[in-house]
């Protein structure tokens, strides 16, 4: 029992720290693409400390506070189900549908808070975010069906173990197609550029985030960090083979090697998202919905059909 609690605390702390580093990497790499120097890589941590150091706080009622906590809690819960090498605590229950579902809950929590603030921009952003959420369901559903069909199981951990034997998922043609579709979906889940209609800085002021200041925004920063970590980790687990290292005799060395390999894979996923995000302009919401119901859906459906043959 105590071991599980310690593990949970370790996972949360590790995910928060690495997630903040990921946010820093996003800003740094984007700056380098623009030929700027960019902020130091630990800049998101400073931002979060600053937000928690605000003297005043604005609240618009109970749901406004609760929505943020709800989003953060859902992200942490999703993280607990995703196998982090050998140190996850709920991995036996971590099934694909559950994790995909839990990774979308945070957006709903932010929506609750944004809608209860009564700001028209927040309402507009919430509407756009829900439409995006609706649009990404279709390719996401096909992706999950294809994975379950190919491996014969819904359990993420069993999929990782199967990849230890049979090679990474992306080296099988049907799953490669699905991985491409999932990567396009990931762009919307990160809130990165071609599909960041829900936040849309400049276009609709900040969308749902417009009314959050002070501690609420600090919580959202932490939620975003953990969310980035969880989403990249999930992708690395189901498509890039995860990592279960048993090469060393010492369990600590094994764990460290696992975390290192996973980190490399996560950063690879993140870098693709940054490169796409830095060079493509934003879609409008109707274009994005049309796009998601067209190309990723076709690719993912083709993958699902090939996987079931």
């Amino acid at each position: 029992m105590l071991g599980a609690v310690l593990k949970a605390i370790f996972i949360i702390l590790y995910a928060t720290f690495v997630g903040f580093m990921f946010m820093g990497i996003i800003r740094k790499v984007t700056a380098r693409i623009h030929r700027r120097i960019g902020p130091p890589i630990y800049q998101p941590i400073i931002d979060t400390i600053k937000f928690f150091g605000k003297r005043e706080n604005i609240t618009h009622g109970l749901i406004y506070d609760f929505g943020i906590i709800f989003a953060l809690g859902a992200t942490i819960l999703a993280l607990m189900f995703i196998p982090l090498g050998s140190i996850s605590i709920l991995r036996t229950y971590g099934d694909l549908i559950l994790i995909t579902f839990l990774l979308e809950i945070p957006m709903l929590g932010i929506m609750f808070a944004a809608m209860s603030s009564g700001n028209p921009w927040a309402g507009l952003g919430a509407q756009r975010a829900l439409l995006t959420l609706l649009a990404i369901q279709v390719p996401l559903g096909f992706a999950i069906i294809a994975l379950a069909e190919f491996y014969g199981t819904f359990s993420t951990y069993e999929i990782v173990m199967a990849q230890q034997v049979g090679g990474w998922s992306i080296f099988h043609l049907p799953l490669l197609l699905v991985a491409i579709a999932y990567d396009i979906v990931l762009q919307a889940m990160f809130g990165k550029e071609p599909f960041d209609m829900m936040i849309a800085p400049g276009e609709i002021s900040l969308g749902p985030m417009v009314e959050f200041g002070g501690k609420h925004m600090g919580m959202l920063q932490i939620q975003h960090a953990i969310g980035l970590f969880a989403e990249t980790l999930f992708f690395a687990n189901i498509f890039l083979g995860g990592a279960v290292v048993i090469a060393f005799s010492s369990p600590i060395l094994n764990t460290l090697a696992t975390l290192g390999i996973l980190l490399v894979k996560q950063i690879a996923v993140l870098l693709i998202a940054i490169f796409i995000g830095a060079i493509f302009p934003r879609f409008t919401i109707d274009q994005a919905v049309k796009f998601y119901w067209k190309w990723p859906t076709i690719i993912a459906a083709l993958g699902a059909i090939l996987a079931s043959l």
Partner: peptide, 20 residues
């Protein structure tokens, strides 16, 4: 904010929201 005098070096970021 852009490439020549990059203020983001000092952690300064333009932000459209009056709350943040």
């Amino acid at each position: 904010m852009t490439a020549r005098y990059d203020l983001e070096r000092f952690g300064i970021m333009p932000d459209p929201s009056p709350r943040q």
